[in-house]
């Protein structure tokens, strides 16, 4: 386990940047596409954007963690910019931008830490300096007023960008508190890698899933979320599977020398690393 004191001024800096870090938008009721962690999966990212356009999405948002896990981290940046995807920062982006020594996912298992370090080092070394600066300028949250609703987009949670909100470990009362304390009645996050939603009296919660790797269900597909905001203020989330050329991605990962364990996940749909953070219900549905 990590023996060193977990020293960091990250939270203080985060607090200092909170005011600058919120992008506020006003949009008419419309169809929005919410893309979760990309993890350098440029093929799935391009596929999801094309799919969302076909479905008539009028605005596209990415909820952060552009790098990690996959190959050629520089490739995702032009795809996001050329398609006008409004992007906010995840913990990986924040670490890369600030030159931190790891992704701050908080693993304690030495095996998980081993793979997390490999992935971070690979991504850090191959992310161009100008893209790191671009990551450092991303907002931490996006607030959207639309259809009379207050929609808040962030990476992990409105409290912390690396907070895990799993379906089986997030009580209703806790979500109601987030709605109250963060002035929103619809909240969308990513970070865990598994999509879920819950409608409560205080608001709608959606974890939009991720594009970077399958969601530990034994299929190679990945997921994003369409959010339909209707004129009457109702919001309807739809989870959309993305079938992409995962074999091509696996070939690129092998050619780059990324761990076989990562490639296996892309090919089989089962997570092989970073399992420590899964609560028991989500873990029971998994293979490993």
């Amino acid at each position: 386990m990590n023996g060193a004191a977990p020293r960091s001024s990250a939270r203080d800096e985060a607090a200092a940047g909170e005011g600058r870090g919120v992008l506020a938008l006003r949009l008419p009721p419309s169809r929005l596409a919410l893309l979760g962690g990309v993890y350098s999966n440029h093929i799935a990212l391009a596929g999801a954007i094309a799919d969302a356009r076909r479905r008539g999405a009028q605005a596209l948002f990415c909820l952060g963690d552009l790098g990690a896990f996959g190959p050629h981290p520089a490739l995702v940046f032009p795809i996001l910019r050329e398609n006008g995807v409004v992007t906010l920062a995840g913990n990986y982006d924040d670490s890369l931008a600030r030159g931190l020594d790891d992704c701050r996912c908080g693993y304690t298992d030495p095996r998980d830490n081993h793979f997390a370090r490999l992935s971070y080092r690979y991504t850090f070394e191959r992310t161009p300096a100008e893209e790191k600066r671009w990551l450092g300028a991303l907002p931490r949250q996006v607030r959207i007023e639309t259809g009379g609703r207050r929609l808040l987009l962030c990476h992990g949670s409105p409290r912390r960008m690396n907070e895990f909100l799993w379906e089986s470990a997030t009580p209703d009362a806790f979500l109601e508190k987030l709605f109250r304390e963060h002035d929103c009645d619809a909240l969308a996050v990513t970070h865990t890698g598994i999509k879920w939603r819950r409608e409560l009296p205080g608001g709608l919660f959606v974890n939009v899933g991720v594009l970077g790797r399958p969601e530990n269900d034994g299929t190679p597909r990945v997921w994003y979320t369409i959010l339909d905001v209707h004129p009457d203020g109702s919001i309807e989330p739809t989870f959309v599977p993305v079938e992409y050329d995962h074999a091509a991605l696996a070939r690129e990962m092998r050619a780059e020398g990324l761990p076989d364990e990562f490639v296996e996940t892309i090919e089989t749909g089962w997570w092989t690393t970073c399992l420590e953070v899964l609560p028991s219900k989500e873990r029971m549905r998994a293979k490993w």
Binding site: P6, S8, A10, R11, A14, N91, D94, R104, C105, G106, Y107, T108, G156, S157, R159, R160, M161, N162, E163, F164, E276, V277, P279
Partner: peptide, 12 residues
């Protein structure tokens, strides 16, 4: 806690 400090979402 089950996840330790980082896993519980601290540090940001």
């Amino acid at each position: 806690t089950n996840l330790g400090a980082g896993g519980a979402g601290r540090d940001r």
